[in-house]
Amino acid sequence: MISLGPYAGFIVSSYAVVAVVVALLIFWVMLDYRRQKARLRDLERAGVTRRSRSGGSEAP
């Protein structure tokens, strides 16, 4: 194991802060993706589709 000298706490905590923030960012992006996907699926199940994909007359 490498020795970090007398200020090991500061070094470890700065790396820890970076790791936590990056993990939060990744988690947030993935959670957001799941949520949007789910909402899109719900809307499609409800029969709402984009006009560009189906040529009109998609009213339920």
Binding site: I26, V29, Q36, L43, V48, A59, P60
Partner: peptide, 30 residues
């Protein structure tokens, strides 16, 4: 690269969010 990856993923989410928004508006008008 981490930023590029996250940014790309977040842009994808945002596009989906806007699509949902326009679909909801469409649904409301229907």
């Amino acid at each position: 690269l981490m930023f590029v990856t996250l940014h790309l993923a977040a842009m994808r989410n945002e596009i989906l969010r806007r699509r949902i928004r326009s679909l909801q508006l469409l649904q409301a008008s229907q």
